[in-house]
Nucleic acid binder design. Structure first.
Lengths: 187, 187
DNA sequence: TATGGATTTCAGGAATTCCTGAAACGACGG
DNA sequence: CCGTCGTTTCAGGAATTCCTGAAATCCATA
């Protein structure tokens, strides 16, 4: 691996962190490298930068494409595929969240739903179903919220985040305003 | 494994899902079992329910305690440790999010900060630093938001989720109201 | 349709993670 | 201070995941 110090530190960190998620070291490193690269890279450039085998890079790129975190770009006059990451970090966040939801949450939601449909034949099972329902409902609320929020344009999303817990003050404000409007109308 | 059908299906699913996260099968199963259990379980009951070794259960419980997802409960007249999961699913969500942030996000934030402090000596490095800064700022906004929201009581949190993207309409409302107040004051 | 570069597939060795049984440890009652 | 019950530690075998080099496949061009 022969990279500028800064890039190398970033790439190595993502390699290590990769294993704390479900992804392997090479996938993490390839992503990090592409994220920092000022222009699209072809696979052999990645091989050279990271010092791993060509086939390993191929598999890593494939996985990153499956995650929608990397896409192919063709450079005129060059037959090789070049790869890029989207450069809008908020878009990356949406993609990441979407994919993790799809892989880690949706299957669970499906199972929980099935289990809730089954008839409970004992007290133990009835208790289990109540617990499962509590989890199911929470996940549904979360995913419903996420489906809406992920559609917000960046600007709005940032405003929402900046608001933080202040949103609840806003909710009270709304209640007061609506109250005023109603009393005004009735007057 | 000899459990009611419903419980067994739930436990097995969490075992499988475990490996999609960073946790292993046994940890997932133990958690699922405790989550459904109507009363605290001691380690041998878990061994019997899951059909894994005593030492494996011990390690799984230890890991779950490190995650703050399971705690010890002493049953009067019984020397054995008994284990429970908190039963408020929203509290579980907070804990889970908090721990994942601590393990998956905070270390990255630290590294990114360090990298931003280093002097960039080339165009490539300056470009890399801009990319790193973009990622760093996004993560800071997210974690700042999370720190605030996680403190909300359940009721407020649920209200916030129910609002979904509607929060941005609320933001517009706020702007109008504030605008009114200001123009009123200046008049 | 032959050629050659680019890419993917895949079997199997390397590395890592998981799980177990045996032994060590700790704490309590006698 | 011994014996017992409960728990934890840990070495090493089992299982899984990762990575590589060689071969197969793809595809644009001549």
């Amino acid at each position: 691996m022969n990279l500028p110090a800064l890039t190398q530190a970033f790439v190595l960190h993502f390699g290590e962190m990769g294993s704390r998620w479900g992804i392997n070291r090479t996938v993490g490193q390839v992503y990090a490298l592409l994220y920092l690269a000022p222009e699209p890279l072809h696979a052999d450039a990645i091989v050279e930068a990271l010092g791993v085998s060509r086939s390993n890079v191929s598999m890593a790129l494939r996985e990153l494409q499956a995650w929608n975190l990397v896409s192919v770009r063709h450079v005129p006059g060059d037959r090789r595929d070049h790869f890029v990451t989207p450069d809008d970090v908020w878009q990356i966040l949406r993609t990441l969240a979407e994919e993790r939801k799809r892989r880690e949450v949706d299957p669970t939601l499906t199972v929980l739903r099935e289990l809730l449909l089954q008839p409970a034949t004992s007290d133990a099972e009835r208790h289990a179903q109540r617990r499962i329902a509590a989890m199911h409902n929470m996940i549904e609320q979360l995913t419903g919220w996420f489906e809406e929020v992920k559609r917000l344009p960046n600007e709005r999303l940032v405003a929402l985040l900046a608001l933080g817990a202040g949103v609840t003050r806003l909710l009270e404000l709304k209640d007061r305003v609506v109250g005023l409007a109603v009393s005004g109308r009735s007057a």
